[in-house]
């Protein structure tokens, strides 16, 4: 199982991002091998449709779950199409902390979008 988290820096101790699809990096935690990997978010500078693109990138990497600060309607549509579940983290935490919170079932699942998308 792979979990992707929007992050401000390239390691698991970095602060989580306030944006999902326009975050600087995604940290991908592989729960089978217990390893972390970081990728630069190729969607962050898109003129439009960053949400869809970010989800596509994560979907192609085989991500099963994303931990996000908020989600626009297009990102949510795309997550559903890629069969990726999303959970909302509180701000100002680190990547490691929100992963613990996820496993402790402290993060609510997002079933409707939380924002209108910001372009």
């Amino acid at each position: 199982m792979k979990i992707a988290i929007s992050a401000t820096e390239q390691n698991e101790n970095s602060r989580v991002s306030d944006r999902f699809a326009r975050a600087e990096y995604f940290i991908i935690y592989d729960h089978d091998s217990l390893t972390f990997k970081s990728i630069e978010n190729p969607a962050k500078k898109e003129g439009s449709g960053a949400g869809g693109k970010a989800v596509k990138v994560l979907g192609d990497l085989g991500v099963d779950i994303v931990l996000v600060p908020e989600l626009g309607p297009k990102a949510l549509d795309a997550l559903n199409a890629f069969e990726i579940k999303s959970y909302q983290y509180p701000r100002e935490k680190t990547v490691r902390e929100v992963i613990y919170m996820y496993f402790e079932k402290k993060l609510p699942e997002l079933l409707v979008s939380t924002s209108k998308g910001r372009h």
Binding site: A43, E46, G49, G52, K53, K56
Partner: peptide, 23 residues
Amino acid sequence: CGNFCNFNAIIPAKKKVLVFQDL
């Protein structure tokens, strides 16, 4: 199609292709 589109208006997912008309 998804690779071609510069505006992320069409995104092929697992079992369907998403089209964002407004993009």
